[in-house]
Nucleic acid binder design. Sequence first.
RNA 1: GGGCGGUUAGCUCAGUUGGUUAGAGUACUUGCUCGACACGCAAGGGGUCACAGGUUCGAAUCCUGUACCGCCCACCA
Length: 951
Amino acid sequence: MEISKTYEPIEIEKKWLNFWEEHKLYHSEPNNSKPFTIVIPPPNVTGSLHMGHALNNLLQDIIIRFKRMNGFNSCWVPGTDHGGIATQNVVERILKKAGILRENIGRDKFLEEMWKWRKETGDTILYQLKKLGCSCDWDKTSFTMDDRRSKSVNYAFTKLYEKGLIYRGERIVDWCPRCGTALNESEVEQEDEKGKLWYIKYPIQNESDKLIIVATTRPETMLGDTAVAVNPNDERYKKFIGKNAVLPLVNRIIPIISDEMVDPKFGTGAVKITPAHDRNDAETARRHNLVLIHAIDKEAKITSFIINDLNGQPIKNFEANELIGKDRYEARKILIEKLKEKELLEKEENYVLPITRCYRCDTATEPLISKQWFLKMNGMAKRAMESAKTEETKFFPEKWLKPYLLWLENLKDWCISRQIWWGHQIPLWYCMNCAGEHILGTLDDKAVSIKWMLETLKLTPQQIKEKVKDYEVGNINIDSKGVFASEKQPEKCPQCGKSDFIRDPDVLDTWFSSALWPMSVFGWPEETKELKYYYPTDVLVTGHEILYLWVARMIMMGLEFRNNVPYHDVYIHGIVRDSKGKKMSKSLGNVIDPLGIMEKFGTDALRFALAYQGIPGRDMQISDENFLMARNFANKLWNVSRFVMMNLDQNAVILPPLASLASGGSSAKNLDDLELTDKWILSELNLTIKNVTKAIEDYNPSEASRLLYEFIWSKYCDWYVEFSKTRLYGNDEKTKSTTQKVHIEIIEKILKLLHPIMPFITEEIFQNLKKQSKSIMISDYPKYDESETDKTADEEIREVIEVITAIRNIRSEMNVKQSDLVDIIIKISSDESEKIINENKQYINSLAKVKEIKFSKTSEKPKLSASAIIGNIEIFVLLEGKIDLEKEKKRLESQIHKINQEANVCAAKISNKNFLEKANPEEVERVKQKLQELYDKKKKLEEIVKNLDIK
RNA sequence: GGGCGGUUAGCUCAGUUGGUUAGAGUACUUGCUCGACACGCAAGGGGUCACAGGUUCGAAUCCUGUACCGCCCACCA
């Protein structure tokens, strides 16, 4: 045999990757069999695959391969996601290093760069998925921004717009000053940080001796204050309600109002109200019809708007001039100094406050009022909740249902517009004629409209389009007049018939297209045959971090557009963490690169390690130890199959049994000369089939992996293979042939069971064994057969194994050389046991290095021997000249000690009246029997020890 | 502030409806190159199952509380 002693994965993986692809074994077409469909959570084209992706895709591949082998028309649709802000940031950063700024090259040029990037990284990611062994149908590869998917997006947007579900609103949004865009609540991260609470004195108008003190964590926002609020029941401040305060440094006159929202116990019980920069304050302002003043702009700098009073008129005694144009934090410092100078700062305290940061660039966000497009969520959320409650969608593990429902219940309208360039540009058009009067935004600090640009600036419609597109003109601020959604570039304005349009420059939230993904990959909204056949899909496999961002929205869109959920099962797995429990991230520098692992340990080892750690409902920590264990396991499998192949007579034995086994049915069980070890291992295999199948169906890859590891290593390799050697190396051709057949059956079924988890090594061994071109990938998964379970064999083999282990133990304890054979005498009180031991003598001889076994009926104890007791079997290992009697005595006494401890526990139970009365009878019987056994064993051991003393 | 999860051998983790002596890998000790495998074989040592109560004949497992760790959600300035 020229097969290497260790498994060398690299070449083998390459070979089968090509083979599978050449034969299009991944490909699926609608046909008459039952489909099983998974749509990939498309990885962002931000970079290369990380361990989280590896896990996510591995789990999908396990299911897909498993189902394929179980006769389903398995289809796994791959693809990538454009990734919105995340991807744009990456490219911006790279361009910046080359000295290129997005603003300078303009939208079109920048997008060209983006597409170049996406081509490269998209290809890399797909290549990496292939390397991982993912059996996706690559012919169906999609991208969220390709033509087909863009059509779906435009269609969906237009339909939702026409239904009146999309509206433009003015809301406080978290604005990232670095990325220059609004962020969704799910795109920000909150963290508690050490800060300060400043107590600032606001003088009361016309009562210069009186003050109202407010506490704030963000003093710079006071520049935009338009009120001070107190609780209506707060006795301290009742006298001030209705009066005015003078905003320090700005000298704006602002009203003192009362509102239930104010907590009298916090701070001073008086709150400054900054409606343009705080969610709460915006609400309060709405209730009290307060004016809002922008104090901070989109770059987080202090604006000039603060010079206006509540009526929009310039303030006369304005003292804060130098703050205008300063960064928010710098302004804060100056402000505090100035307040100190004027003795308007009462005090400052240390305080821990929540800071909201952009999840991509980590910049502290600025709450800003801005115009955004929103999708109404109320109705859609209700339907999604219904579908979850009626189990149209089931969550695995179930614990995710509750948070999911809770999230839907509190769902606010979805802000779907983003002020970036990379994404689906919103398919809304503004007629330059009809919408001409409306304010488009600001240009050089002036409010501008289309009409103004046409007439005053004398710009051409084309120039205006460019200015809007590149965001030279700020937020579009048009109301419904002259606005319409259209899937394609409109030809004529339905209102005036003219054909000069500006397209809304915003793009859609990246999750908008993701939400349509399970439908769009099959060509929706067209009723394609794929859509009819594969949709709804079967299961969505994803990490819990995007349960809300993505899963919930897909379900809502599915219900909205097709009246059904896009999948019936949602399988939520854990997040991969490093060995310290931290989430892997590039910035922390704790990422383990799956490609590196694949090279070092092999792809199958990576897969097995991840599957092994993939415990439902838990995040997982992963380290080199896991990969090492998996690599060793792969090697074990490799070698045991080498062993089997080395022991086959190539032409005589291998082909006939394999031909019959190929159908998937068992033939070994029908052989007429099966003996105990065969029956036992076949029964164990059968049980493993049952449990592994159940584990995979229950989305428990960890359980499946553990079961296979245990069976293959601890049962098959450690015991059956060793048992079988005496027969394979013997001269009896019949028994030899039987053993070979059993081995072939076991190994073939092991390979199939393991294939979904370890596709490469199993294919390699399978093909070596079979020498046929048919792939294991499309072979039949082993089926559990109840008739093959053999409990008797299991009990009987245990006796043999225990005897062997006991003798080995004695040999080891007594330092008997490996090469020395020993004689043993066995005393058995039961004929049945004697028969079993007698029939399996050869195994005891070979595995425990025994020269001769004698059976004895006398009560006499052989001198100079070490002993062990297994149930009703007494074993005496004859060790003349090798035994240390003192040591033997100690060994036996420590055994007696252990038995005593255990017996005490049992005896206590038996003497407990309550136990006898209340425990179930089977348990009582078990304990009684157990106690009897312990006493018997103890008695025998004590006798032996006594004999030792006599010597 | 609310919700969820975790705490089991030195380390990383399993442990199904409460019921054998709480398991595995790794690390450790000892002995093995004997015809699959030293990425191996054999034998061993190692745990008050975070803590405190409770339910029960019986608790790692169920309940309550506490501590620490982690995650998610929330408008307390």
